[in-house]
Design a protein around this nucleic acid. Structure first.
Lengths: 170, 170
DNA sequence: GTCTACATGTAACTCGTTACATGATTAA
DNA sequence: TTAATCATGTAACGAGTTACATGTAGAC
């Protein structure tokens, strides 16, 4: 249910088209939310139909028109309401842990070794990516946004040390 | 796509009914996977139709029949294949981080304070629950299963120390 | 007499993924 | 000449959620 709110949040920072939003998700928001193009266009349509966004079409020569969206008052109110509403319970779905949980049946020590090695490579790579992103911290909203990156870093570090522990426990 | 495999994995440990599976998810697997009843029954039907499960109906007096499922050879092979296949990329969807990311717009220091306090209470409670579960570690499969619990513990601890850091950075 | 455990499902809906479909401009 | 960027979407499917629907036995 939060894709709607993530879109409202990004459009509050700056009015954008569906195309711009896809870039915003992939670049600045990719450490906490992923969104697919067709999902973005569909949700923009719903938010517009619900009166939470205004659409403003900009003609361009030799390119498709830009359909730029910005929050209406109702959209802004909805974003506030969401920020202040209690968090709905999140349910875990950790496919990697599921593999580890069931890997014992294989009677094959190489299987877990391989799971661990591949996981470590993935987590290290993502950690490097997170560290490479430099987030400004001059203003209060910037500091909050920077802290969400920091969240990713500490969890990736925790995962790496757990992988060491797992390897040691075999 | 992993609910199918989580079900195969649990049925490999012990043949079960849909009802039993729901309990298994809620009790022993809840730290890494959640599944809903209607999802379980639907998926059991699909797995059976695909020849990965055998169904065995047990008549009971004064209770509904038990429909007990166990892996076929094809089901067992499918579970193995999954355990050895490369992990598909997982995309983040962290609603709590999304709130923090957008909370700066509110110009209200109490908002982040409230988000942090509620989050801390939730994470502490879950951490207590994880610590309360005692997992046997006598055999190799048991040690693997215990390590998935340990994974939850280290991530919850990391989240708590990040929350302290966030509070300090305001 | 009320609640919990046992045990099965279906229907309707929303959310997320993948593939399909189009076409111009600009930089290497 | 090839790839990337700009810019829009639709269709079909799979996964997850919520509400509906039924009925007995045993414990408190």
């Amino acid at each position: 249910m939060s894709l709607r709110h993530a879109i409202l949040g990004l459009l509050d920072l700056k009015p954008m088209t569906g195309y711009d939003l896809k870039k915003a998700f992939d670049n600045t928001a990719r450490h906490f939310w992923a969104a697919d193009r067709s999902q973005i266009y569909r949700t923009l349509g719903n938010l517009h139909a619900d009166g939470l966004l205004n659409e403003h079409v900009i003609r361009q020569r030799s390119r498709p028109d830009r359909h730029e969206y910005r929050l209406t008052e109702a959209g802004s109110a909805e974003l506030d309401t969401w920020l202040r509403s209690p968090a709905p319970t999140e349910l875990p779905r950790e496919a990697f842990l599921a593999r580890v949980y069931f890997a014992g049946r294989a009677e094959d020590p190489q299987l877990v070794r391989k799971l661990v090695d591949e996981r470590r490579a993935l987590v290290r790579q993502r950690l490097d990516e997170l560290r490479a992103l430099e987030a400004p911290t001059a203003t209060y909203p910037e500091r909050l946004r920077a802290m969400t990156l920091r969240n990713g870093i500490v969890h990736h570090e925790a995962e790496l040390s757990w992988l060491d522990e797992l390897e040691g426990a075999l």
